[in-house]
Design a protein around this nucleic acid. Structure first.
Length: 420
RNA sequence: GGGGAGGUUCCCGAGUGGUCAAAGGGAGCAGACUGUAAAUCUGUUGGCUCAGCCUUCGAAGGUUCAAAUCCUUCUCUCCCCA
């Protein structure tokens, strides 16, 4: 292969690329002119999680090289559900819910894709579209006649994603997903000159179908580029944590927990994730990729950079300081501030509160049984003193300077503030 | 429309009248070991006023001293035929 286009090369070097419909053709096109490209976003939730972010990090790099990103909200297609990689039909949402979700998604994507880029900035211009705008009032007969005739059921059934679903059941609705996504591509080509679709490798089939459709109808050549589906070394799904999906929305997943998620990645994943999920130059990443460097420094850097991108530098600093101090022994004032907390009146504390009740109140434990278990197993601590007795009554003598820190296990803290 | 197979605790999946709060695995939680990692080992995972008691096995009834297990109706899912 001759020298690859710079933007493509960046993606290649950072470990994004899984496959491309035509490396040389795409590379040549990108050398020649800024390319408009798109990736689909699923608006079924009000927040995306980091597992969904890979294509957008890729988008960031492409935008930086002057190409024009389109983030396509699947407002129309999500009313249907994509069978790719899913074992079940997903929940259908109302149009209103989807519209609502879309706007918060834009803000989140804005952390890596610059929707405000102006001419002359060297960056490509980014826009966000919603395919509901053209799918919403499609005419069924026309659609079948113009689009449907280009699809072979025999062919579709050979796609891996459909094959799998045939085992378990696939509704006709979902089966149409590919047509709609292909129609998206066609529409974007026609109206925005879009020539490239990127996405996770699970989208390969749909992407290829779209390219074929554009070729058949418009006799134009478009391209597709897919990225590695990110897995974790331990086999867990990317973006899932013990606290649930790692959402970007700080209300749903706090910046501190977000930081911790990255801080705790598997050793084997650190360098790979740095390349994919931060904008650090590769040369700098390389300095961490040696046995001489303490792997924990690398993890801290990864966590910091990633948190900075998503939540901003202030939150990143706060999370880092909090993490350091929480794990370094005595929590600093700032770290304590950052803990989840609740206030109880002094009078109540003076009267005495059972430990079990206290832990449940703190939300550290879900039920009394849960709290009882935690204590029995030696995981409950108040002010760093292990709670041995399930029946312990906690009173004001436990508090220090008007507060006390509860701890469940090694990583979960809670701060009780005593009000006079 | 006809026929068949099923719905079990967070998930998968045993369990066909009492010994079932229900095997096993996954996942989670806690402990040990560590590096806030992984792997490993141990304990634990319905609730409660916790050596006992109460509520669970799609839903509602029924049979029985006793039901997740038997009967009836309903409901949902999947498969085959039309």
């Amino acid at each position: 292969m001759s020298a690859m286009n710079k933007a493509l090369q960046i993606l290649q070097d950072r470990g994004f690329i899984k496959q491309c419909t035509d490396y040389e053709g795409l590379s040549a096109l990108m050398d020649r002119e800024p390319v408009t490209f798109y990736v689909g976003v699923d608006p079924t939730g009000k927040s995306i999680h980091i597992g969904h972010m890979v294509p957008f990090f890729a988008m960031h790099h492409l935008q930086n090289e002057g190409h024009h990103p389109i983030a396509l909200v699947g407002g129309g297609t999500s009313l249907i559900g994509d069978p790719s990689g899913k074992s079940e039909l997903r929940q259908m949402l109302t149009v209103e819910q989807i519209q609502e979700n879309s706007s918060s998604l834009k803000a989140q994507l804005g952390t890596v894709v610059d929707f405000t880029a102006k001419e002359g900035s060297g960056k490509g211009q980014a826009i966000m579209l919603n395919n509901y705008d053209w799918l919403g009032d499609l005419n069924y007969i026309e659609f079948l006649r113009d689009i449907g005739k280009h699809f072979s059921v025999n062919r579709m059934l050979t796609f891996e994603s459909y094959k799998q679903r045939l085992e378990r059941g696939l509704s006709f609705i979902e089966f149409n997903y590919q047509l709609l996504q292909s129609f998206d591509y066609l529409t974007l080509y026609r109206e925005h000159g879009c020539r490239l679709q990127i996405g996770g490798d699970d989208q390969w089939g749909n992407i290829v179908a779209g390219i074929e459709l554009v070729r058949k109808i418009e006799s134009a050549e478009c391209f597709g580029l897919t990225f590695n589906l990110i897995t974790r070394a331990d086999g867990h799904k990317m973006g899932k944590s013990e606290k649930g999906a790692v959402f970007l929305d700080p209300e749903m997943f706090s910046p501190y927990d977000f930081y911790q998620y990255w801080r705790n990645v598997n050793d084997a994943d650190v360098i790979r994730f740095m390349k994919l999920f931060t904008f650090l130059p590769l040369e700098e990443i390389a300095t961490y990729d040696t046995p001489k460097v303490n792997i924990n420094e690398a993890k801290e850097r990864l966590a910091f950079e990633q948190t900075k991108i998503i939540h901003g530098i202030e939150e990143a600093e706060k999370a880092k300081d909090a993490a350091r101090s929480m794990f370094g022994g005595v929590p600093s004032e700032a770290a304590r501030e950052g803990l989840p907390s609740m206030t109880i009146p002094l009078s109540q504390l003076e009267a005495g509160i059972g430990v079990i009740e206290l832990f449940v109140m703190s939300t550290l434990c879900k039920t009394n049984s849960d709290a009882r278990r935690l204590i029995t197993q030696g995981g409950a601590m108040i002010q760093d003193k292990k709670v041995e007795d399930v029946k312990l009554i906690v009173d004001s003598s436990w508090a220090d300077q008007g507060e006390m820190i509860l701890r469940a296990g090694k990583k979960r803290y809670f701060r009780i503030i005593v009000s006079a």
